[in-house]
Design a protein around this nucleic acid. Structure first.
Lengths: 223, 223
DNA sequence: GGAGTTAAATGACCCCTGGTCACCGGTCAA
DNA sequence: TTGACCGGTGACCAGGGGTCATTTAACTCC
């Protein structure tokens, strides 16, 4: 008679068709995103994600095998969307200055904190508890988008070679990850950084990213 | 009679003098470090740290209030040591080229993976569950070392201003954090990156860091 | 529209790990 | 000798990720 006194409630209609399942998957991703935006990866509980969509905790695990898989899927979506946005902007116009490109990249990341925060968690946290398949699918997508971006970069900035364009992307990725972490700090640290003499440790994500990319490009052009 | 059947064992002599406590603190840090080097932050268990030093789990919490505090203390040590090493090297010689500096910085980080891995965890993980006091003490130390480094940078590279030297440190910090994460990946991801066409996603920490810093400095000089 | 079948959803349960605390006992000053 | 102090202990607790036997909605076929 184990578990015989199960409560009687089925809140939501069952997702039987593939499109319904996909919709439910989306709901879960949206819930995870909203909770993550308000707190942090560690603070988001799978039970909360479930509650927010009106489902039971166990149901979440029907759609995502682990918490990390859920958030990696979220990152996957956000990354695809961001690359599409960036590549769209890179497609316009003829030849650009390095500073123009830096501004374009930095601007494309405005309001994309969720994306960059997750990006910073990718290797450290998200890929720790995930299947090979999901990791590969994710990286395959990154690779594709990166290829397009590299090609567009060479169009806009003729002084870039295939090699330097690829390197640039790597370095910008590193900068985005690193600067996001420095700018997006824990409440305790934020309190400490309020002190006047701590000013040198305060980081403005957009400003620093723009500056760094501009400098990198000037360096590449001066070669 | 709660907990009345406590086992009878006192493995290690008690640390009564301050220096003994300090030594025990060091042992705990060393144990944490060894375990972290073999695995990851999430995989290191406080019980393991205790076992490795021959202490009971509860004892660890007499020395460090939380797991994060333990690792932040470890980072504090490693960071101080690394800055000392770097500043020592920066003190030699007259005027350098940007490439020389880049090589010096990158070389000073060779074999310091533990340091850079922890650095990458700092804002995301370590400062999440730590007292204001510890955070402030840590940042105070960073600030001091950074000041010295900025001054030395301006000596070696005369084209740097106080402002650009500070910015350079920020950008290098971001690059170190970001590149370490990209280079030091989870086993699952490593497996995926073995595939030939994944080559563009493989990152050589030292090589990329050297390249990025060199480019940054060329950009600053070309201003 | 009733019987049978499939599989989505449930939630009690398991387990692991960070963190607590009442108790133990070695040491040393009085 | 003794009693207070305090470092150390480990059983215990809390809470969150993940499992699975069971329930039952929804669809199929007659």
């Amino acid at each position: 008679m184990a578990g015989a006194l199960a409560a009687k409630r089925v809140a939501l209609p069952r997702a039987r068709r593939d499109e319904d399942k996909e919709a439910r998957r989306r709901e879960l991703l949206d819930a995870a995103r909203a909770l993550f935006e308000a707190t942090s990866f560690a603070q988001v509980k799978m039970a909360d994600v479930a509650a927010r969509t009106g489902l039971a905790k166990g149901t979440v695990f029907l759609y995502f095998p682990t918490k990390e898989a859920l958030f990696l899927a979220l990152l996957d979506d956000l990354l695809t969307a961001w690359f599409a946005k960036l590549n769209g902007r890179l497609a316009e116009g003829g030849t650009w200055t390095g500073h123009q490109l830096a501004c374009t990249v930095a601007q494309s990341l405005e309001g994309e904190e969720t994306f960059t925060r997750l990006l910073a968690l990718m290797q450290t946290v998200l890929e720790q508890n995930v299947t090979v398949e999901q990791t590969q699918a994710f990286k395959e997508r990154v690779l594709g988008a990166m290829g397009t971006t590299a090609a567009l970069l060479q169009e806009r900035l003729p002084f870039l070679t295939a090699r330097t364009a690829g390197q640039l992307i790597t370095h910008v990725h590193a900068l985005v990850t690193g600067l996001r972490q420095m700018a997006d700090i824990a409440p305790v640290a934020r309190e400490v950084l309020t002190l006047p003499h701590m000013a040198p440790l305060r980081v403005d994500f957009t400003a620093e990213l723009t500056a760094a990319i501009t400098t990198l490009l000037r360096g590449l052009q001066a070669r």
